[in-house]
Write a protein that binds this DNA or RNA. Structure first.
Lengths: 248, 248
DNA sequence: TCGCGCACTTGATCTGGGTCAAAGATTTTT
DNA sequence: AAAAATCTTTGACCCAGATCAAGTGCGCGA
């Protein structure tokens, strides 16, 4: 859900303020009407668990506002975040019974859900929706594998820079700003959540953010508001060769 | 491609000695005949690169014999393996232009390929194939995310045990042995390749294998042939709570 | 306004795994 | 069968990041 190539196919959804990236624009109105019929909203407070790993999950949907995370936990409490869900991201596993991960609301959260059974039935009848879902799942697979490189081979400093890069890009694409040079955004995660995403401790996250600040790669207003004076420099710190087509 | 829940839908393919997990058993014979028409074989020697990251990839297919790996590389040479392709595993990204990773033959390798354009056309006409691909991609996504936990949070010893667990399971399912208690299999990877999969150095891999041997968790005949006297013990060493439904 | 709680920072110390180096062991070449 | 190349093991040492331990600062309820 961290890849932007899918946005173009999205469509406005009734009274949602966001676009559902799950739904294909080429699908005709009668299918969209059917989607409206099986649609409902759910709200969660910050810190609330949307669904536990292994539990039956009888819906799919998109994040409307707020942030949710996908995490895996070992018995001894070690946790690894395996996905970050920002507004417009899709949640759910069509064709699967339960959830594979804990889904947790990191901030107050509103989701637009579709009941799974009818959604799957609609998918059967509407090839475009199945193709969109395949596209999206491939995007998520790419993002997950790119993150494997971050987790397995990057230093703490590179990990922080990589995360900032991703958040900055997502933020820029949501706000339709053209990120030439400097960028400004809010960190949607606590230091601890960042640590769980990056396979670090929260102390190391804090130290590396301080180091990036000291070295002029970023500056902070308060604890969460970030200014990146030179995005290319940040990419360099992330050890990232590509700019993901976001610059120029 | 490390998840076993998809095997049941597979189908024998002409003269391939393996089952293509990509192709749905419910598809009728005329579609299978069309698949035969666009099918061809490719062989690679150990060490040969099947395709470079970013290069145009005009086929999809399955591994028939041998092992291939998916790897990502940083400019400075650090590499992370993001996928391990064993016989019957699917390779390819329907709907995508190029490869996202380097695909490398780790041993001598034979692949059964389908030309991508006609395969995609067939997919358009045959919803079952699209659904099978979505299933498979979800399996790979689950495997990738499970691996994120391994890379981000497990110790070197747990990482080695996790890898052995996966190889043992795959091997058991290919050979249709029921893995009650002890298991025997060959390591299909060099120490260096294991290190690249696990985000370690080859020295650490070697040391941890020696430690598991010393502690009686495994024993080695030669450098590659592994005996696991007690699979439950290995799972415990991997920090893995679930047995993945392979035991009992 | 006070004080409590939570998120964050910073310091001191420890350690798991990396790095560097030197041998085995196995396979391949000649 | 000797030589060369490759893969693997093991040892000695080091360092990035973990752990343990105080703090700091901000928001919020009383």
């Amino acid at each position: 859900m961290l890849n932007e190539r899918t946005v173009s196919h999205s469509v406005e959804c009734g009274d949602c303020p966001i676009r559902h990236r799950a739904v294909c624009a080429r699908c005709e109105s009668d299918e969209l009407e059917r989607l409206e019929e099986i649609k409902y909203y759910r709200s969660f407070e910050a810190g609330q668990t949307v669904i536990w790993s292994g539990d039956r999950m009888d819906f799919v949907g998109s994040v409307v506002t707020g942030i949710a995370t996908l995490t895996q936990t070992m018995e001894d409490g070690r946790t690894q975040m395996v996905g970050l869900l920002l507004p417009s991201d899709f949640v759910g596993r069509p064709g699967r019974e339960g959830s594979a991960y804990d889904v947790v609301a990191t901030t107050d959260l509103v989701m637009c859900c579709f009941r799974k059974k009818p959604f799957e039935a609609l998918m059967e009848r509407t090839p475009h929706i199945a193709h969109r879902l395949l596209e999206m799942t491939l995007d998520e697979l790419d993002a997950a594998r790119e993150w494997m490189l971050v987790l397995g081979r990057k230093t703490a400093r590179e990990k922080i820079a990589s995360l900032l890069t991703i958040i900055a890009r997502r933020d820029a694409s949501l706000n339709l700003r053209t990120p030439k040079g400097s960028m400004v955004f809010d960190l949607p995660l606590t230091r601890e959540a960042m640590a769980d995403y990056l396979g670090l401790t929260l102390e190391t996250v804090s130290r590396q953010i301080s180091a990036l600040k000291r070295d002029g790669v970023i500056s902070l207003q308060g604890k969460r508001h970030v200014t990146v004076p030179d995005f290319a420099r940040l990419l360099e710190e992330a050890g990232d060769d590509s700019d993901g087509g976001m610059l120029a």
